[in-house]
Design a protein around this nucleic acid. Structure first.
Lengths: 228, 228, 228, 228
DNA sequence: AATGAATGAGTATTCATTCAT
DNA sequence: AATGAATGAATACTCATTCAT
């Protein structure tokens, strides 16, 4: 642990309640009718993201965010209900595209598709490593965010699962694999490596990693290239 | 001097500047000279673990731990310097055995070994899920703990990498795999699934998962059973 | 994120290792941008001084000071980093003028000058007795403050020493006095009496004391009035 | 002030009561029937004095004293009611002899007597500087100790005052001096210099200082040597 | 007598959030 | 909309003193 203890200043909490931490519901603020308002709001979002990525959610103080945005302390609450809200908004605007399979059309060679998906996943992870790290932190004490994070993983796995079944039915891959487990395992493999590379800071050659992941994946499911 | 003595509340004193990152420095506590003392210390450790697992590190208050242990507030500091210290001690006493390959002797069939290792990993993860979740949380803002955690992962991967090279040299598995990447990827695959099962709470059949992971792993590296 | 936001209570964070002895470092507080802010800051200073004088530094709690100032608990830290800081600021604003020789022009009769200096010293001491008592307390466990206090004394003695040499050269006083020792002794004599009168609370007639001190001083150094 | 604030752990206090802090009254402990008991008691006294002189009263913890004495934590209270009590006992055993005029018999030459008294005072101060510093600290927040300290000074002054009157009546010194003020002033002069030398740590040559103080004193009162 | 474990009063400090201009 | 001052809940930690063996 190391450093001398000092209170961590902020985050959300429900004393003694270990239950769901859902939807902020309530009032939305500062919708931004004015152009100036909209600008300030955006400044705040950018500042918040920068601060979060720099020091993490727990150590980020609203005051820091305001300083970063160059606005006064109190104005924050003109635009956001709480620190949590900014965070959520940032998350919403960032998260979604780990899943997309880019660069390989629907009908393409399965190996190609897998390679493309792996590459895309790693690229996206790399691009968003900063905020992903923060999301990981927050998901550790906030059920909402944990939910969202699991959800994202689940969707990813579902997509893989779906395709796995398809390939199995077409006899392209091993029949004795459980599509759901395999999907989660292989998705987890890629996610784990991405985490090691971009969150934990371990060194891997990007392209080589894509190749190896693809090879492992293809072997694992026993995919035979459909290429002639 | 005065009727009822009472402490003078405040003044300036040099904080025991405590540069070191690991050793909490200063006076050592809870020497545990007495059986009673040792008992209390253990109670405190148990209580702390229970509380950490229940509410996480962040939400755990020293007061909660003391209440759980049934001792007075101040006694905590007879044994530990800080909440961090108890945590570290718990971590040290728990972490180490994800790595062991149990149940399959050194010379056993490679597939058997992999299966045994996977089973052991999942079992250990399941057994320690509570504290592992907390470790994950803390590693999110504490570099020492992060370090330790990465270390553990790294060692695991090293072991796999070593064996992978061995198998490659013996021609038992694909030659074109990069042992390091493969080791991290496959290790990550198992770890990720363990996380999904025992930390994120997704449902998977334990035995089936062991089988599937083993199958995926074996396929991925192209291992041919050495059985006749 | 959660229904009602509430702070996450604790975790580890690097204490702003603050080696410097003087500047409290870290974020500067209470910039006093607003008139209102400046007012509050002043209120706080006044309150702090009052509390310090009433109960001493050791027994003064930040809460007491805030209560005295009629502001909320936390606001204190908008303006000052710590109890120590307020104290230092008060000291800085008060200390300096024990030294001045008021009322007797540079070229005046030496005896007149001594009398004026003595009177001024006692007056200043009397005026600031409250805070001087506190300074004495703090200098007892705080090296900086001790330093400052000694410094003040030293400067006073230096001034006397300087003049003593001058008078010796001009043959106005005994030649066999050691200017440095004499200066410290005579300065100490006055300071000591001031302390007895205004800190220890012993009763002495003010004017008579000035006269007697002057007489003792003049005799001690063998000063012959330059008056015709 | 400098160091980061941290609570000063101990001393006596009466919340909100600025009144007298008198007599501990109550029960005396550990009178020491046994030889062993008496030994332990003395060890404790010695240890306490050492610790007090090393870190001051405020920073001295009962635990420190016990450690220094090599006895167990709780045994302290077998012998003393409180930290204050040990302190008082130490003070009582040390304080008294600043006053004595050693080395010059009653009928000796007045100048000799003054010289001898000055020398004795400085010597005693030097010898007991360690504990005197602590007494000074404690007198800052403890009325009893303050009282005692003032008392000592007062007695010293009384002695001087008495002698001064005597000399005045015998026509040996100036008639226009106020014996009480002069006594306090001159006594304070010596005390102040002693303080500067042995508490504040300023450098003065011992013998020279005695000479100069004597000279200043003799001059101040206009004493004519009775030597032929 | 000695030991050392247990107790608990006492307080500084942070920072999200609200509020008066 | 913006500003920045004010609020106050929340909690770790120390150490004198007591108590059970």
């Amino acid at each position: 642990m190391a450093e001398r203890a000092a209170r961590i200043p902020n985050a959300t909490r429900k004393r003694q309640t270990n239950g769901a931490d859902l939807a902020p519901a309530g009032k939305r603020r500062g919708t931004g009718r004015t152009a100036r308002g909209r600008q300030t709001r955006q400044d705040l979002l950018d500042a918040a993201q920068a601060v979060f990525e720099r020091v993490g959610f727990l150590h980020a103080r609203v005051a820091d965010i305001c300083a970063e945005a160059g606005i006064s302390h109190g104005s924050f609450y003109t635009y956001f209900v709480s620190k949590e809200e900014v965070f959520n908004e940032i998350v919403d605007s960032v998260e979604f595209d780990l899943l997309k399979v880019e660069g390989a059309p629907e009908g393409a060679d399965p190996v190609e598709r897998i390679r493309a998906a792996n590459r895309h996943y790693l690229e996206a992870y790399r691009e968003h490593a900063g905020i992903l790290r923060v999301i990981q932190q927050v998901s550790t004490f906030d059920n909402d965010v944990r939910q969202t994070r699991v959800q994202r993983q689940t969707e990813f796995a579902h997509a893989i699962e779906h395709r796995t079944r398809d390939y199995q039915e077409r006899g392209l891959i091993h029949a004795d694999l459980d599509p759901r487990i395999a999907a989660n395992a292989l998705g987890g493999m890629v996610a784990s490596l991405a985490d090691q590379m971009f969150i934990q800071g371990q060194e891997f050659d990007f392209d080589e990693t894509v190749e190896q992941l693809t090879m492992l994946w293809v072997n694992a499911v026993g995919l035979r290239s459909t290429a002639p």
